[in-house]
């Protein structure tokens, strides 16, 4: 039995209301059997400075990526991670994190590749929870390890590879969710300072620039209302829920946020995240680039 869904009117207004919870809902359900709260941050130390009581840490770099190949963990690695965090296939996982949930959305997306059924995001993430004065703890839980069955990752539905993106140009919609400066190809021209890890600046031809941040409220990082989101993605950008859409950013973390918005909040049916993103595209030989 999944933990009951959040009946909050804002949550219910979205296309897949079972994918989002409010801070108030989470506060009321903490500790409930079948619920695991997972923090995923950009800053690897943030969890240790204090987290939602009982929350486990899932680190995108150390836990979700293969340490050798640039890819996600495989079926064995994923099963071991879930087991160690006390998660079973029936568990409701609520992700939250810093940076308006970039990394939480990324973790949720990776877990979705493995078909874990009940994954939800905490609207507003870590900042909103803390700003509201809700409880935090530095106690690191020691969950009883579970048995999590080995499930193969399915990369065919919500993940896009470079060759697929190449074939997608002119045949589907591309959304570049990076900042306008990254999209335009303007670099940080400062002598002796590290660049962002790509040899070429610009964007994938035909991609529309819709910075991920536009989907979040500035003050608390929560998602904009469904009407505001429709105004941005459908009215302004001309996307429709039936479109075949690929989103990308630098390494796929910010575009996971946009993937979540389009898929779960607006109900788009065919959205893929190109996690290779600019660090792959901007370094690849002979792929087209537009400025």
């Amino acid at each position: 039995m999944p933990v009951e869904f959040d009946s909050d009117p804002k949550v219910q207004s979205y296309a897949h209301p079972q994918r989002l919870v409010t801070t108030a809902w989470l506060d009321a359900h903490l500790g409930e059997p079948g619920l695991v709260v997972a923090e995923s941050d950009e800053d690897v130390l943030l969890y240790d400075t204090g987290h939602i009581p009982g929350a486990v840490k899932i680190d995108w770099h150390a836990d979700l990526n293969d340490p050798l190949t640039r890819d996600y963990v495989d079926a064995d690695g994923f099963a071991a991670l879930m087991a160690a965090k006390g998660i079973t296939p029936d568990t409701t996982i609520v992700f939250y994190g810093d940076q308006s949930n970039w990394w939480a959305a990324y973790a949720l997306w990776v877990v979705s590749l493995f078909g874990h059924a009940d994954v939800r995001l905490l609207d507003g993430g870590r900042k909103k929870w803390i700003d509201e004065g809700r409880a935090v703890s530095t106690d690191v839980p020691a969950p009883t390890p579970t048995q999590y069955p080995r499930t193969e990752r399915d990369d065919s539905v919500i993940r896009a590879y470079r060759e697929q993106v190449l074939a997608h140009i002119g045949n589907g919609k591309l959304v570049d969710v990076r900042s306008p400066q990254e999209y335009s190809g303007e670099l940080l021209h400062m002598a002796d300072y590290p660049q962002e890890g790509a040899l070429r600046g610009g964007h994938i031809p035909t991609a529309a620039s819709v910075p991920w941040r536009r989907a979040a409220n500035d003050e608390d990082g929560s998602f904009r209302t469904v009407e505001e989101l429709r105004a941005i993605y459908e009215d302004e950008q001309g996307l429709s829920p039936q479109d075949d859409v690929v989103a990308y950013c630098r390494i796929g973390e910010r575009s996971s946020h946009t993937w979540f918005v389009l898929t779960h909040l607006l109900g788009f049916e065919r959205v893929r995240n190109y996690d290779g993103s600019w660090v792959e595209w901007g370094n690849a030989v002979r792929v087209p680039i537009e400025r």
């Binding site: 690897v44 590290p194 890890g197």
Partner: peptide
């Protein structure tokens, strides 16, 4: 192994600025 290369570059950036 624990911190991504991009984050580690933050440390390099701090030193580069101090040196300059």
């Amino acid at each position: 192994e624990l911190v991504t290369p991009l984050r580690m570059r933050g440390l390099a950036g701090m030193l580069a600025r101090v040196k300059r």
